[in-house]
């Protein structure tokens, strides 16, 4: 079961269809079971029942999730796969002590890989959709995997399957989410390696 987390300003908000539903659609089409919860409603049952977590993005002006860092502290002990998308990357990085800095990108942006990683399947350069005002400072224990001309676009924990993507893979790069959920080592689809 994948736990999809909605970071938007209110449970069932007007932004949900834009930032959460496209991720849910990709999971549904891949036949992967998932459950979606608002970030303010994650309790022990949700955490314990999750094989992996996807933290979704938010609207550009929607930064309320950053005012409650305690809501994401459990991620530091989760140890199962996590994919943080845009605001989700910021929340993931913040949980591990990573700060953020102003960096506004809106629209299609060229992403270049800095270090190989199975999540990106050998791709070195691709174009991705970005909508963010801040970039993430790579927290201790993480490595930068990819960058645009202006900032780091992907990070991964050095020893755990925790990923952060500043761009939105659900727009024109669905293959990245599909690789995240399909990786047989993660056992999310019941397949064996």
């Amino acid at each position: 079961m994948i736990l999809v987390i909605d970071l938007c300003y209110r449970d069932g908000s007007l932004s949900r269809a834009e930032f959460v539903a496209p991720v849910e659609r990709i999971l549904r089409e891949a036949g992967v079971p998932f459950t979606t919860r608002h970030h303010t409603a994650i309790g022990a049952p949700e955490r314990e029942g999750a094989d992996a977590v996807i933290l979704c993005g938010t609207a550009l002006r929607d930064t309320g999730y950053m005012e409650r860092p305690e809501l994401f502290r459990w991620l530091t002990a989760f140890e199962r796969p996590v994919l943080g998308i845009s605001s989700g990357m910021r929340a993931l990085a913040a949980a591990f002590g990573g700060g953020s800095e102003p960096c506004c990108e809106i629209g299609m942006t060229e992403i270049r890989m800095l270090a190989p990683d199975p999540l990106f399947g050998g791709r070195e350069v691709f174009s991705a959709y970005t909508v963010h005002e801040h970039a993430v400072q790579v927290p201790d224990g993480f490595v930068a995997l990819a960058a645009s001309e202006r900032c780091v676009q992907a990070i991964r924990h050095r020893s755990l399957p925790l990923y952060g993507l500043l761009f939105h893979p659900e727009v024109r790069n669905e293959w990245i989410i599909e690789r995240f959920i399909d990786n047989p080592h993660r056992g999310l689809t019941g397949r064996t390696g």
């Binding site: 269809a17 834009e18 002006r61 809106i106 629209g107």
Partner: peptide, 22 residues
């Protein structure tokens, strides 16, 4: 992208409730 940029310049929220809709 263009509407998002203008909203950003003006400090307005931007909502796209049909974005990537089935």
């Amino acid at each position: 992208t263009r509407v998002q940029r203008i909203c950003h310049e003006l400090g307005l929220w931007c909502f796209n409730p049909l974005w990537l809709a089935d």
